[in-house]
Structures are given as structure tokens and as C-alpha cells.
């Protein structure tokens, strides 16, 4: 049934092409494969998600999406390349908060919403605060109280300067006034190892990184930094519920060079939406421990801009 539907669509679009139907640019776009630049390394969550979603691109876009990895500079190299590319819709970027928001907002490197246009958000992974089960604090509130009673004693493991963990921990510290030792790590994997080995007391990482250790009883979740609770952890409160309003989306989305014509953006956004609704794609995303949280160009643009402004303000106030 679904197969038949696909063939019919393909047949109709072929017919439409032959008849020169529509005539507008949007109907003609795309006439060749679209290149998606991923500015991070092979096998990261961005790479995996992009490959899963675009695996069915041919069916919904009419042309395949070619993935090109351009790692380096924390994502700056690939982002710069797309920002400079011809805004014809054929070169787009796989964006993420590190290289598309924080780096440009805080360090002025890479490219943010001033240089790129939003197409859509595919999804995001919520991040979580976790500790060892034997820690003297059992909840997020207790951890804050403990840190206040023992100023400068709590050892926090971040995932690199200005990573999601570093940024949110600094936010939490600023709101609650706690003092701690903020130890840098080379990514979320190493900070999780440090937490498991007892070298740090608390760490923040995507829930997907922590889940197997929580299930095995090796780690205790304290709070989720999201608007709502994570369906995989219905008992774990959000930080907001615990009185500390810190939210972070580790998002993945499509971005285009500034000035890409609106009809092309919409065409790409619609195709992406259909790809994320494909059953095989949804199954793959589920196996990574994530969900689809699609946002179209306008809504996503607003969320992204707000995030950029927040990080800019945080960067200016925390950098001292």
C-alpha cells in the first residue's frame, strides 16, 4: 500500500516534470542531489541522525541527499563553508547548538543565525544532571543545598569549555549562587567515565549517554534540563520543577546559507518533515534513544534566535 503510494507520487512528479507543470522555481527545485555538510566527526549523534533521516530523501525530495563530513574547528570549518556557499539550496548544513549557537555567540567563531537561515529542526536530546548513587544528596535540591553548605567542595565534570554541560552548569551556579570545582573533559564520554570512576561528583550529559548506567544502578539521575520530563524517566523532575529554570536543547537541524530563496527553504523543510514521519527513520531514531521533535523554519528560527541571544548574554557575563 505504502509502496504503491510512493510509485504513484513518483509517477505524478515525473509527469509534472514532463509537462513543465507549475513553472515556478520551487516546483523545479531540486533538479539534482542536495549536499548536506556535517561539520563534526563520523559516528557522532549528529552524523547518525543525519544519515538516518536522509536515507529516505530520494522518496520525498525527488533527489538523494549527499552527506559530506567536514570536521574541524569544533564545527567552524564546515559552518564557514556553507555560509560562503551559493544560496541555491543545494548546499546545506547540519546544525547543532555547539557550532551554530554557542561558538558564534560566545567566541565569535563559526556561523550563527546572522549568517545562516533556518530550514527545520529534526529533533533534540534532553540533557540530564546525574551523580553516583552513594552521593550524600538524593535530589537536585539536596545537591544544591549540599553545595551551599560545602562551598567549593563539589566537583563537577564538564564536557569541554562552553559545551552543553559547561554552559548549563555555569547557569545553574549563577542562579543558585553555588561554588564548585568545574573540571574540563574532552567530551561527554570522558566526563561520564570520570563520574563512574568517582573522579567527579556530578556531570551533565544527554540522557542517552547516561541511560544504561542509570538502569544498571551505577548512576542516579537528579534532574532533566528540559521543558517537560523525559518519557524514559517519568520520575525524574525537570530542573525547572526543582526551582532552577535552566533548559538546554541538544538539537539537530538543517540550515541554509543566508539568502536562500524562501520557496527552496520550504521545499526542503516539507521534505524533511516527511522524512521524519517515515516509519523506518522513526525506528532508527528510536534506536539511538531519541525522538522526533520537528519544527518548521519559522518556529525553529525563533527558538534558535532566542537561544543565540541567551548564549550571547551568558557568554558576556560568565567569561569574566
Amino acid at each position: 500500500m505504502r509502496q504503491g503510494h510512493r510509485w504513484m507520487l513518483a509517477g505524478m512528479s515525473a509527469l509534472a516534470c514532463m509537462l513543465g507543470w507549475g513553472g515556478g522555481q520551487a516546483q523545479e527545485f531540486p533538479t539534482k542531489p542536495v549536499t548536506l555538510i556535517i561539520p563534526s566527526g563520523a559516528g557522532g549523534s549528529h552524523d547518525l541522525t543525519a544519515r538516518a533521516v536522509t536515507s529516505v530523501a530520494n522518496e520525498y525530495l525527488g533527489h538523494p541527499v549527499i552527506i559530506q563530513l567536514k570536521p574541524g574547528g569544533g564545527g567552524a570549518i564546515g559552518s564557514d563553508q556553507v555560509a560562503k556557499a551559493n544560496p541555491d539550496g543545494y548546499t546545506i548544513l547540519f546544525g547543532g547548538p555547539n557550532w551554530s549557537t554557542t561558538l558564534p555567540a560566545v567566541e565569535g567563531r563559526s556561523k550563527g543565525p546572522d549568517d545562516l537561515d533556518p530550514i527545520c529542526r529534526i529533533n533534540y536530546s534532553p540533557v540530564m544532571v546525574a551523580t553516583k548513587p552513594e552521593a550524600p544528596y538524593k535530589t537536585f535540591k539536596e545537591m544544591i543545598a549540599w553545595a551551599k553548605a560545602n562551598p567549593g567542595k563539589l566537583v563537577f565534570g564538564n564536557a569541554g569549555p562552553w559545551s552543553q554541560a559547561d554552559l548549563t552548569w555555569k547557569q545553574i551556579s549563577r542562579i543558585t549562587g553555588i561554588e564548585s570545582r568545574n573540571v574540563p573533559h574532552d567530551g561527554g564520554g570522558p566526563s561520564t567515565v570520570a563520574l563512574l570512576g568517582g573522579h567527579v561528583d556530578v556531570a551533565i550529559n544527554p540522557t542517552t549517554t547516561f541511560i544504561s548506567y542509570i538502569q544498571a544502578g551505577k548512576l542516579r539521575p537528579l534532574a532533566v534540563l528540559d521543558d517537560q520530563r523525559d518519557p524514559s524517566f517519568p520520575d525524574v523532575p525537570t530542573a525547572k520543577e526543582e526551582g532552577v529554570d535552566v533548559v538546554y536543547y541538544l538539537w539537530r537541524g538543517m540550515l541554509a546559507p543566508k539568502g536562500t530563496p524562501r520557496p527552496f527553504i520550504e521545499k526542503l523543510a516539507t521534505a524533511c518533515k516527511q522524512m521524519t514521519e517515515d516509519k523506518t527513520v522513526q525506528a532508527m531514531i528510536k534506536s539511538f534513544g531519541d525522538r522526533i521533535q520537528y519544527l518548521g523554519p519559522d518556529e525553529f528560527g525563533k527558538v534558535w534566535r532566542a537561544e543565540f541571544n541567551l548564549h550571547k548574554e551568558l557568554g558576556a557575563s560568565l567569561k569574566k
Binding site: 570549518i77 569541554g160 569549555p161
Partner: peptide, 19 residues
């Protein structure tokens, strides 16, 4: 990039050198 602050060292503004 330095491991604590993420400050650039000896990169001369070349993004290829930041890693």
C-alpha cells in the same frame, strides 16, 4: 584550543588549526 577555557593558542586565526 586550551582544554580549560577553550582559548585559541598558536592558531593565527586559521580555523584548521583550532583542533
Amino acid at each position: 584550543l586550551d582544554p580549560v577555557l577553550g582559548a585559541e593558542r598558536y592558531t593565527f586565526g586559521i580555523s584548521n588549526l583550532t583542533d
